[in-house]
Structure formats: C-alpha cells, structure tokens
Amino acid sequence: MNTERTRFYRDKVNGKFMGVCAGIADYTGVDVLWVRLAAVILTLSTGFGFPLYILVGLLAPKKPGHLYGNREEQKFWQGVRQSPGRTAREVRAKFRDIDRRLADVESFYVSNNPRLSAEIERLR
C-alpha cells in the first residue's frame, strides 16, 4: 500500500489555523465544517479540544503538495483509508467489467471476421 497517501497530514492550504481540522477532513472524507464543529464542541464540553489540536498541529507533518493529482484520485485514497477491503473489491469489479467488455468486443470482431477468428485460434 502507498503509505504516503494513506497517512495523516495537516492541511495548511485548506486550513484556517494549523490545518489540523482540514487534515482530519481530508483523511476521513468528512466535510471540514463538521470536523471544525466537532472540535469546537469538544473544546467547549471537555476543555481538551484546544490542547489536543495544538499537540496534533505540532506533531503531524504538513501535507505534501504533490499528494493527489486530481479530485477523483483524492476520493479514491480517502476510500482506501476508510475501507481498504471495499476499495479492493470495487477495483476488482471494475477490472472484471473491463475484461467482460473486451471479451464482447473480441467476440463481435471475431464473429464478423473469419480470417481474424482463424488467426486467434491459431495463436491459442
């Protein structure tokens, strides 16, 4: 597994203060508004929220700029972090679909082209 894309980073680019809430949102795929709201509620109810935020902000590495190529890649890696098994099943299903579609294309061209059909059978 690509550990660079599956670990936690603080996101200074999308963050307000130290980027901890934006990093949690990026890591989990939850909207950053809900993460910030949870941090405020944790701080107001227990008092541990702000010291914990500062501690994570000091210890967590900053998110590299080259981490994701596009939004689709970001969503894929969030899915990997949330449920690696489910993501592997989805990838296998996509490959099975591609294989099925290629088999359909092959059978279409082979059935309409006897010379190509003979060539494929000779290669087997």
Rank of each mutant, 00 (worst) to 15 (best):
K75M: 05
G49L: 08
A39P: 07
E121G: 12
R81N: 01
E90A: 15
R100Y: 06
V110C: 11
G79E: 02
F50S: 12
R86M: 10
A38Q: 05
V20Q: 04
G23D: 08
D26L: 00
K63Y: 01
M18K: 08
P61R: 08
D97T: 13
L52G: 01
F48D: 08
L44M: 08
R89K: 15
D31W: 02
E90Q: 15
G29A: 01
V30D: 00
E90I: 07
E73L: 07
Q74L: 05
V13H: 09
L116A: 10
G19M: 09
V80K: 02
L42T: 12
S117Q: 02
N112R: 15
C21N: 05
K62P: 09
A22M: 03
A118E: 07
R89Y: 09
P114Y: 11
V32L: 03
D31R: 04
A103I: 04
G47V: 12
F76T: 13
W77A: 10
N2W: 05
N112P: 04
R89M: 08
K62L: 06
L44Q: 11
E90L: 14
R100D: 03
V13T: 10
G57E: 04
I54G: 10
R86S: 12
I54L: 15
V20C: 05
P64M: 06
E119C: 13
V56E: 05
N112M: 08
S107F: 07
R100H: 07
R89I: 10
W77G: 01
K63D: 01
V13Q: 13
R81M: 01
R36L: 04
T87S: 11
V35S: 00
E90C: 10
A60C: 05
R115E: 14
Y53D: 04
E90Y: 14
L58M: 00
L116T: 06
V32R: 01
E73C: 07
W34K: 09
T43N: 14
E73P: 06
D11A: 03
L42P: 02
G65W: 06
R5E: 02
R96C: 03
A22S: 13
G69E: 11
L123S: 05
V32G: 00
V40W: 11
I120P: 12
E106Y: 14
I120D: 13
V110H: 06
H66V: 02
C21S: 06
T3E: 11
F76R: 08
Y9W: 15
D97N: 06
R86H: 15
L44I: 12
P51I: 04
P61K: 11
Y109W: 14
Y27N: 05
T87W: 02
Y109A: 13
